[in-house]
């Protein structure tokens, strides 16, 4: 007589599990997400910039004056040298004086210099350091370009062609600095 094995339900179940398990194990494809780099330039209106020696000025702009004769200027300066090189003086082509200010809890006050650490940078902004252009005789408006001359402790003088922008337009381009908190899980 021929041996006719009867396949028990249990054998069928386990064979099915085994097959499914192995098949699904083989089924994966490369699952890394697409790696297209994000689109090109930072957003916001064009701002002024210049570079000399180891100093690099970027994102320079002047606020359209709200009141006659006075306004602020902002920019970011990077120092690629080995020594700190603070900004010690500034001049502009439209104002009588250009002073270095900082914003503190007591309000705005004049400072002697704006620090620019070696290997780092300083961002001039409304809640921190900024330039005050005072004594502007001919009124300036959004769309004009002003020449700022920045003098640093190490002797470098940089001239920056700086656009005048409405405050809201200029601040809209400001991006939060730094990176993205990304550590997840425990591995």
């Amino acid at each position: 007589m021929a041996h006719i094995p009867r396949i028990t339900p249990l054998a069928t179940a386990s064979a099915t599990f085994l097959a499914l398990a192995l098949l699904s194990g083989c089924a994966g494809g490369v699952s890394a997400p697409s790696s297209s780099p994000s689109s090109a330039a930072p957003s916001g209106p064009a701002k002024g910039g210049a570079q000399q020696a180891d100093l690099r000025v970027e994102e320079a702009w002047i606020v359209e004056p709200a009141e006659e004769g006075t306004t602020s200027a902002y920019f970011t300066v990077f120092n690629d040298a080995e020594q700190d090189d603070p900004l010690v003086a500034a001049e502009s082509s439209v104002s009588a004086t250009t002073a270095l200010y900082t914003t503190s809890s007591k309000g705005m006050e004049v400072v002697e210099e704006i620090p620019v650490p070696a290997g780092g940078g300083t961002e001039l902004r409304p809640d921190g350091f900024h330039l005050m252009l005072e004594g502007i005789e001919d009124p300036i408006a959004a769309g004009d370009t002003v020449t700022l001359t920045l003098t640093f402790a190490g002797g470098t003088e940089i001239q920056v062609d700086t656009p005048v922008l409405e405050r809201s337009v200029g601040e809209q381009g400001e991006e939060p600095e730094g990176g993205h908190e990304g550590h997840s899980g425990h591995h």
């Binding site: 900082t102 914003t103 620090p115 620019v116 650490p117 070696a118 290997g119 780092g120 940078g121 300083t122 961002e123 001039l124 902004r125 809640d127 921190g128 350091f129 600095e177 990176g179 908190e181 990304g182 550590h183």
Partner: peptide, 27 residues
């Protein structure tokens, strides 16, 4: 002061001086 950044090299140096000698990640 607001707006000043000493730069990543200085930050790593400070961390090394604080005793972090192994390979590190800076965020």
């Amino acid at each position: 002061p607001v707006g000043v950044d000493v730069g990543i090299d200085h930050v790593v140096q400070s961390a090394r001086e604080a005793g972090l000698t192994a390979a590190v990640e800076v965020v």
